[in-house]
Amino acid sequence: MRHLMTPLDLSVEELDKLMDTAEDIKEQPDKYAHACDGRVLATLFYEPSTRTRLSFEAAMLHLGGKTLGFADAGSSSAAKGESVADTIRVASCFADIAAMRHFKEGAPMVAAQFAQIPVINAGDGGHQHPTQTLTDLMTMRSVRGSLSDMKIGMCGDLKFGRTVHSLIRALLRYNNVSFVFISPDELRLPDYMIEELDSHEGVEYTEVTKLEDALPELDVLYMTRVQKERFFNEEDYVRLKDFYILDSRKMEHAREDMIVLHPLPRVNEIAVEIDNDPRAKYFDQVKNGMYIRMALILMLLEIQVK
């Protein structure tokens, strides 16, 4: 039995296969419509999340399965003080697979230790969010044809942004990928991520504070939101939340074939006027997110569709 805690739990080959399956589902959804008949997905969400939870539920429903679960800690037995270990033991009795989001880092790993069913990390605090990374990778591959040979700019909250950390780690396994990290000083990439980049020979990266300077050389721009829930201090959040706003004026600096990604939800870091720009791919990301989760559920439940 396998779980998914970080994107690195999957080899590059397995990732390729997973993305192939997701693309196939996208093209021929009917073929997969009953692949999970009679199966149940438990969505154990201790932290509110609209898109990720709906995406998991939609994924299971489109495979013919059913879902159950809770959408925040207050409506679960966690409010009564139940441990993660006990909750997953109970969920194992009712479901075939579980997706867990938790505000504490490492919680899904604890769940995986005690589960009788495969557990998917659906985001654990500021730590990991592997299915978002799979979504990002799939979108980049889908648009560009490959995950090698590109320069990606990551902009916004690089300190607490778990999607950024997961994506960097995943991209370090591909050839000739270079990075431009665009953030205010307070939200720079943490030292341990810099160390990780340094430990990979030949990987090029730069850190800048001005978005306009980086834009002309990028193949991909990955925007992130400054997340209020990661700050202990409201003042710091207010000061940093509007540091970057991508608008049409800034997009003039970007190449015609650059793509803009965002894990969503956005607040105001991408002006709505960009939504109609063909380079904006963040809503495609949402769709891909469902397909890749469908492929992941099939893989972890070891279901082959001919």
Partner: peptide, 13 residues
């Protein structure tokens, strides 16, 4: 010592 770690609240872990 990370206050955001699950080990800070999970009993018996």
């Amino acid at each position: 010592k990370n206050p955001r770690c699950i080990s800070s609240i999970e009993q018996g872990l």
